[in-house]
Structure formats: C-alpha cells, structure tokens
Simulated scan of single mutants.
Amino acid sequence: MREIVIRINGIECSSCVIRLKNALGALEGVERAEINSVTAQSYIIYNENILSVDDIECCIRKSGYQVPMMTAEIAVSNMYKKQEVQIQDCLKAINGVKEVKCDIENDQVNISYWAVGIRSKDFIDALAGNGLDGTVIEVNGGEEEQIYRERLFHLRLLIESAFLTMPLLWNPSPLIQLLIATLIQLGPGRFFYKGAWKSIRNRNFTMDFLIAVSTTIIYGYSTYIVFTVHDDIQLYFLGDGVLMSIILLGKYLEILEICLREKVR
C-alpha cells in the first residue's frame, strides 16, 4: 500500500467533498480516501500495483476538479544522447511524474509532475542511483505558489465587485444602474458562471451554481423592471452587487486563512 497527499483545486463545500470521496472510493485499489475541504487536500491510501497516480488524477478530473501540475528543471552534468532513455526511465519511475524531457544541448532535464508530495531531492536521488549528478535549477507550481495565486485572484475579484457596486449606493438613473450591474455580472460574476457551467457538466450542483442562479434572477428581474415600469421603479441591482461582494469576501477570507496557517506570503 502507498500513501499520498494530493492538493485539489475546486473543492468549495461539503457536497464537493462527498462527491469526490465517493468517486475515489469507487476506484479499484483505493483502500482509503479522506478529503479536507479547508486545506483542499486529499489523503489517499491505495494499492500501487493496481492504481497509478495518473489513474487517481484522471478520476479527480472527471469529477470536475483539478490536481495542480508542477514543473522542475534539473541540470545533469555531462549528459549525452545515449543517456536520454536511462534518465527518462529512472525519473518516470517516481510515482507522480507525468513527463520527462531531456535537453541534451543545455545539459538539462525538464520534469512535469503532479502535486503529490514529490520533493526535488527525489529527482536528485533517482539520478544519483543511476550514476548521474543532478542539480535543481528551478521548481514552479508548488503548493505555496498555487495558494498565493488563488489569494491574488480572489482579492482582484473582490476589489472589482466592491468598486463597481459603490456607485449604486447613490441611486443613479435606471439605465446607468443597468450598465453597472451588467459589468458586475460579466466581470466578477464570471467566476460563478464558470463554476456553475462546470457543475452542470458534472451533474453536481455546487454553491457556484446557486449563486449564479440567484444573482441572475435578481439581475434579470431588475432589467425587466427598467424597460417595463415607468413609475415608482424599485430596482435590486444594488442588492445584487452587495450579495456578490459579500460572497467574494468570504471566499477571499477562506484563502487568507489558509495562507496564514501555511505561512504563505
């Protein structure tokens, strides 16, 4: 049996956890699968003679979620053409390595692998076991980098939503409110529409789907009023913007809490 911890993107609520846990548990060879929605990580015990990391990643992807891909550049001293197959075989033997490319001219090896707890030292040790001397040049796409990018992404959406919602507090003309609300729906709101479309394709109605439906109903109803009612107009574009901003604030605080716990910049 082998144990791995996989970071998974796209887990947002308890229904995501249940759906993915059931999908992983149904795989032949999986002994145990536990998922933490707060850290977005999955702890899996599986039989490596039956399953590979690629099989697990494929199951996660088919369920509507993603495993981050990492890359590493390794310098190999005095590498020549005849060693290419040997280098590829020894590195691909590491569980979780997806692809190995050798750059003979520059004495470098480029490795793509899933974020399943592989360390750069594992590559160096594998090369050393085959009589090769390797040095790590660069590693990209690590867990800390993924969390940091998510934090910046959600912060940008929150700022966009709050900035666009503020003018609605002064109750401008109906057409201007409609224009601002449209920018909110197509700007920050695109995050929820993408999540809703993904949930529809995977037949798994997540929070993104509910948020997209509710904000669209508010937007659609207020738009109808703008063009049909001419006296005592009561619009709800402000409520739409405030609702979206509050939800985005909650998502940002979740990511921020993970950053503080994991000591990510």
Results as ranks from 00 to 15, higher is better:
6 I>F: 04
181 A>P: 02
215 T>E: 00
158 L>N: 11
27 L>C: 09
80 Y>G: 11
229 V>D: 07
18 I>S: 08
105 E>Y: 08
42 S>A: 02
226 V>G: 10
59 C>E: 12
216 T>K: 01
178 L>F: 10
98 K>P: 11
196 A>H: 03
117 G>W: 10
99 E>S: 06
205 F>V: 06
74 I>F: 04
220 G>Q: 11
176 I>H: 12
59 C>S: 04
99 E>Q: 11
56 I>N: 13
191 F>M: 12
109 V>A: 06
246 I>A: 11
194 K>Y: 06
121 K>G: 02
103 D>L: 13
87 I>E: 14
161 S>E: 04
147 I>M: 06
147 I>S: 06
218 I>A: 12
212 A>G: 00
194 K>Q: 09
87 I>N: 14
14 S>E: 15
260 L>Y: 05
48 E>P: 15
85 V>I: 05
68 P>S: 06
137 I>Y: 06
2 R>W: 04
150 E>V: 04
49 N>D: 14
55 D>V: 01
4 I>L: 08
229 V>R: 15
260 L>C: 03
164 L>Y: 10
169 L>E: 05
201 R>D: 02
204 N>L: 02
177 Q>A: 04
19 R>N: 15
131 G>W: 05
2 R>E: 11
190 R>S: 06
113 Y>W: 09
96 G>S: 10
124 I>F: 04
166 M>C: 03
222 S>Y: 07
169 L>N: 06
164 L>K: 14
153 F>P: 08
70 M>H: 08
264 V>C: 00
175 L>V: 06
105 E>M: 07
141 G>Q: 09
168 L>P: 14
54 D>H: 06
88 Q>D: 10
148 Y>S: 13
35 I>M: 07
204 N>M: 02
209 F>S: 10
256 L>G: 02
147 I>Y: 02
244 M>I: 05
257 E>T: 09
37 S>Q: 12
228 T>A: 03
185 Q>P: 11
246 I>H: 08
123 F>K: 14
248 L>H: 02
